[in-house]
C-alpha cells in the first residue's frame, strides 16, 4: 500500500497542495511583515517569508536557487537588516513605523499593483516548458552565467562594488564639528559597533 497519487477527497496533485501551503505561507508572512508594530518582529517575519519562497523554488525544480535564497537572503541580508535595526533603534526613535503614517497611500498603491499583476497574469498565455527539468542544473547555470551572460554579470558586480565603496565613503565622512555631540575617543574609533541602545521597547505586563 503506497500513498495515493492525488490528495484524498480533493483530487489535487501533491505538488499543488505543497504549492498552496508555501504560497499561503508566503502571503501570510508577507502581510505580517507590513502590518506588525514591532520592527524586529517584522524582520523575523521577513525571514519566514524568504523561507517560504525558498520552498517554492524547490517545488519548481530549482534547488540551487533555493539554497542560494536561504544562504544569501536569510543568512546574510536579513541578518544584516536586523543587525542594523538593533544598532540604530533607540528610545528617541519613531514608535510607529513608516507604514502606519502612510497606510492609505500604501493600500492604494498595493491595490494598483495588484490589479496590474492580475491583468498581466490573466492576459499572458503560459505555455508549459518544452524541455524536462534537469536534475542537476548547477553546471548549466554556471555556463549561462560565466559564458553567455558574463558581461552583464561583471557590470552588475562593478555596480555593487561602487555601491559598497559609496556606502563606506558616506559612513566614514568627516562630520561637521558642531554636529559631533559625543567626542570620539581615539582608542575606540576602530571598534565597529557603538554601544547599542537598549530599552527600546515598553515593558509589557
Amino acid at each position: 500500500m503506497s500513498l495515493p497519487e492525488t490528495v484524498p477527497f480533493l483530487g489535487w496533485a501533491w505538488d499543488d497542495l505543497l504549492f498552496l501551503f508555501f504560497a499561503g505561507a508566503l502571503l501570510g508572512t508577507g502581510l505580517m511583515v507590513v502590518i506588525g508594530r514591532n520592527i524586529i518582529r517584522s524582520g523575523l517575519w521577513m525571514i519566514c517569508c524568504f523561507g517560504a519562497l525558498a520552498g517554492l523554488y524547490v517545488l519548481l525544480g530549482a534547488p540551487l536557487i533555493a539554497a542560494a535564497q536561504v544562504l544569501i537572503y536569510i543568512g546574510a541580508i536579513s541578518v544584516l537588516v536586523l543587525f542594523a535595526v538593533m544598532l540604530t533603534q533607540s528610545k528617541s526613535g519613531p514608535v510607529g513605523l513608516v507604514f502606519h503614517h502612510q497606510a492609505w497611500a500604501g493600500a492604494l498603491a498595493a491595490l494598483g499593483i495588484g490589479i496590474l499583476v492580475a491583468v498581466v497574469v490573466a492576459g499572458t498565455a503560459w505555455p508549459l516548458a518544452e524541455t524536462a527539468r534537469t536534475p542537476s542544473p548547477t553546471e548549466e547555470l554556471a555556463l549561462l552565467l560565466f559564458r553567455d551572460y558574463v558581461l552583464p554579470l561583471e557590470v552588475v558586480s562593478v555596480l555593487l562594488l561602487a555601491a559598497v565603496i559609496g556606502g563606506v565613503f558616506l559612513a566614514k565622512r568627516e562630520r561637521e564639528p558642531e554636529e559631533t555631540i559625543v567626542p570620539a575617543e581615539p582608542a575606540r574609533e576602530r571598534m565597529p559597533a557603538p554601544a547599542p541602545a537598549v530599552g527600546t521597547r515598553e515593558l509589557t505586563p
Partner: peptide
Amino acid sequence: DMNIGLLYFFGIGGLNVVGLLMAGW
C-alpha cells in the same frame, strides 16, 4: 544525498545566527 549538499549545509548552518540574534534581542 543532495547534489547541492554543501550549499544546503552552509545555508541551513547559517540560520543559527538568526536564532542567536533572536535570543539576544
